[in-house]
């Protein structure tokens, strides 16, 4: 491996590990109760007591960031799972069997692919209303097309290999060929798409919750913390900076990994 690639991979791994530690930390116990308000600590600055300071209700921002990272990671994982699972099913079926179904689904797929995932998710939210689980469904659906396209391309490549024809000659069923011979070969391409998917999911989740279309208050979410802090940007600019840096940090980790894995 080239040196620059190695540096990227290691940095990406370290950052992602830190993000996961934060998420786990947010799951177990945070330094402060992320919901308890303390009027005496309103807009408290950065200190040893409150490393990221406090927000307009005197809630500890660091604790809220930890829970926010947990929420973002949970939502992103669900979104990527939905996208990858259904995308793989659709991509495999259309790529393997071809025909009019392939033609039909891929037309829709390509049309959807032209639209940014945030737009698609907004449409779905417009239909079902906002909230954590609605957001998961909305983004999950928005993530299907890109997975379907990638998987379909890969399946097409594998399907035309000689050994698949040989296996067919031996009388293997389509189901067996797909499960035994095709799906395992998708590992590499899926791994890198999942990492890139995480990158996009974190970005989309943060964007949607910034717009107020995600986790409902008072539950902390990184995007909403940003938009709330923006109201008080004149008095307490740092309250907006920390959640934003954490979002960028998460995306940076996944994009570094995505650049190096599977290529």
């Amino acid at each position: 491996m080239e040196r620059s690639k190695k540096v990227k991979l290691i940095t990406g791994l370290v950052i992602t590990a830190l993000v996961i530690i934060m998420a786990v930390w947010g799951m177990i116990k945070t330094p402060y109760d992320p919901y308890s308000m303390d009027t005496s600590a309103k807009f408290a600055g950065v200190s040893l007591k409150h490393v990221f300071g406090c927000d307009q209700f005197g809630r500890d921002i660091f604790s809220r960031v930890l829970v926010g990272v947990r929420e973002t990671m949970f939502i992103s994982a669900c979104v990527v799972f939905i996208g990858a699972f259904l995308g793989t099913v659709i991509g495999t079926v259309t790529g393997y069997f071809g025909g009019w179904l392939d033609e039909f689904l891929m037309r829709i797929n390509d049309a959807l692919l032209a639209f940014p995932s945030v737009l698609l998710a907004l449409v779905v939210i417009g239909l079902f209303g906002s909230g954590k689980y609605q957001l998961i469904v909305a983004l999950g659906i928005a993530f299907i097309p890109s997975f379907a396209r990638i998987v379909r391309g890969e399946v097409l490549k594998i399907r035309n290999l000689d050994y698949i024809n040989a296996v067919k000659l031996y009388g293997a069923s389509n189901f067996r060929i797909i499960v035994v011979h095709i799906l395992p070969n998708l590992k590499t391409v899926l791994l890198s798409s999942i990492i890139i998917g995480f990158n996009n999911a974190v970005l989309a989740e943060a964007g949607m919750s910034y717009l107020g279309m995600g986790v409902a208050p008072p539950n902390p979410s990184l995007g909403r913390m940003l938009s709330e802090a923006q109201t008080y940007i004149f008095t307490s600019p740092l309250a907006a900076v920390f959640p934003g840096i954490v979002i960028a940090f998460m995306i940076l980790g996944f994009s570094l990994l995505g650049d190096t894995v599977g290529k």
């Binding site: 943060a206 964007g207 940003l226 907006a240 940076l252």
Partner: peptide, 26 residues
């Protein structure tokens, strides 16, 4: 260049908007 690029790529537009507001606006 590569390092700066990688970092800027990772900053979502709404956060860079807030940073720009902080720096150039406030």
């Amino acid at each position: 260049f590569s390092a700066v690029n990688q970092i800027i790529m990772s900053i979502p537009s709404f956060f860079s908007g807030i940073i720009l507001t902080l720096i150039f606006g406030i």
